[in-house]
């Protein structure tokens, strides 16, 4: 049984952050695929965007480059706008059908 160097194993590298980001992104993707409630699907999309943000911030930190943080700023703005549009569409759906299931979206027009 070889001796394990815990001081070496304990340091958090970029790989740790990237792996966490991968798990988070795939959880968000599963949410989009599995759930039929439009609002929960929007929440899952937010999870995916946050996973990407974590990747940007981790790279910015480990490379000593601030550009990643600026890109995160942009992603957050676009994510807020996307959530606004999605929720407005959900309101439009709910007014007509009293439900927010994704299958009702095909009946939207005008």
């Amino acid at each position: 049984m070889p001796e394990i160097d815990f001081t070496q194993a304990a340091t958090i590298t970029l790989n740790h952050y990237l792996s966490l980001s991968t798990g988070l992104f795939c959880l968000g993707m599963l949410g989009v695929l599995l759930r039929r409630n439009v609002i929960v699907m929007l929440m899952s999309i937010e999870i995916m965007l946050n996973a990407v943000n974590l990747t940007f911030v981790a790279f910015a930190h480990y490379r000593g480059d601030i550009s990643g943080n600026i890109l995160v700023f942009f992603v957050m703005t676009v994510a807020a706008a996307e959530a606004g549009v999605g929720l407005a569409l959900a309101v439009a759906i709910f007014k007509r059908f009293k439900d927010v299931n994704i299958k009702l979206f095909e009946q939207l027009k005008g």
Partner: peptide, 10 residues
């Protein structure tokens, strides 16, 4: 990711 074990200090 193997190159960036520690944060680069710019």
């Amino acid at each position: 990711s193997t190159e960036l074990k520690k944060p680069l200090q710019n």
